[in-house]
């Protein structure tokens, strides 16, 4: 009898451990942030955002929390294409901010987002950041293709990388036909995002890097080179609540806050442009 008791207790322990193991394997909860259950789950919002929006979306979240009072925003900062894959594989944030339209439109097409809820948040353009001391003496766009200049751009599959490719095409059309070819020959690395480019330029590891204007605003220590208006590329940043949002009211309220005058002022202070009318 005594033995049975002990056996039963051990079995219960083993069973509960197995359940924990199985729960951990459950593919419905891949994103770490969604696993974190705050004491009052209904007042917690999870938002996915790209690194290009990182500083600004933190301010937006703080502003919204102050205004709404009883809500806590959990942010997941990552790459837009990765976050799209995560949502397609079952991650359930309440709100998603994206760089570019491609990924959010793909999510809307799969009905993971209501198509009429996808809103343009802001626009961003490209700029060249220069390291301290500007060792390659870059003063004009043409200087970027001087032989030996060490250029950092983003991996072309990322929204920033796509925009950079388009920029080089535009510069080939406007400045010199071989501009793109020469520029790509100067590229020393295709970084996996804007922030690594800003950091490595800040360390002086390369001579110039192509990032969003808002990234340059966030790194006031770096000198910049403006790109010609007729060649620059505009990237739309989008926002939407998810169809499966656990708290649809709060999710909508957060999106509305980001689009309000107060939210837009925060975005524009970081170098973003108002969304296309």
């Amino acid at each position: 009898m005594r033995l049975l008791d002990r056996r039963a207790r051990w079995f219960a322990l083993f069973l509960s451990l197995s359940l924990v193991f199985l729960a951990a394997c459950n593919p419905v909860t891949p994103a770490p942030a969604t696993e974190v259950e705050a004491p009052a789950a209904s007042s917690t919002l999870t938002a996915f955002a790209p690194a290009a929006l990182g500083d600004t979306v933190t301010q937006l979240a703080a502003g919204f929390e102050a205004k709404a009072g009883d809500v806590k925003v959990l942010l997941e900062i990552g790459h837009t294409p990765t976050q799209r894959t995560q949502i397609e594989q079952g991650a359930t944030p309440d709100v998603i901010f994206t760089a570019g339209k491609t990924d959010i439109e793909a999510l809307a097409q799969q009905n993971l987002i209501a198509a009429d809820q996808v809103k343009p948040l802001a626009r961003n353009q490209l700029i060249v950041v220069l390291p301290p001391g500007n060792p390659a003496q870059i003063a004009t766009v043409e200087d970027l293709v001087k032989p030996g200049v060490r250029l950092l751009v983003a991996q072309p599959e990322l929204p920033i990388g796509m925009a950079t490719e388009k920029l080089l095409d535009n510069l080939s059309a406007k400045v010199a036909p071989d501009f793109k070819e020469k520029a790509l020959a100067n590229v020393v690395s295709r970084e996996l995002g804007v922030k690594p480019i800003v950091t490595k330029i800040g360390l002086g590891e390369a001579d110039a890097g192509v990032v969003f204007i808002s990234d340059a605003t966030a790194a006031p220590g770096l000198a910049t080179l403006m790109l010609p208006d007729d060649a620059n590329v505009t990237v739309a940043f989008m926002v939407a609540p998810l169809a499966a949002a656990a708290n649809p009211e709060k999710a909508k309220a957060f999106v509305e806050y980001a689009l309000s005058d107060e939210g837009q002022a925060l975005l524009q202070a970081q170098g973003f442009l108002a969304p296309a009318p």
């Binding site: 690395s189 970084e191 996996l192 690594p196 490595k200």
Partner: peptide, 12 residues
């Protein structure tokens, strides 16, 4: 590697 050597097809 990604931090120190970067990402370039054929080189890193």
């Amino acid at each position: 590697t990604i931090v120190f050597a970067g990402n370039m097809v054929g080189r890193t």
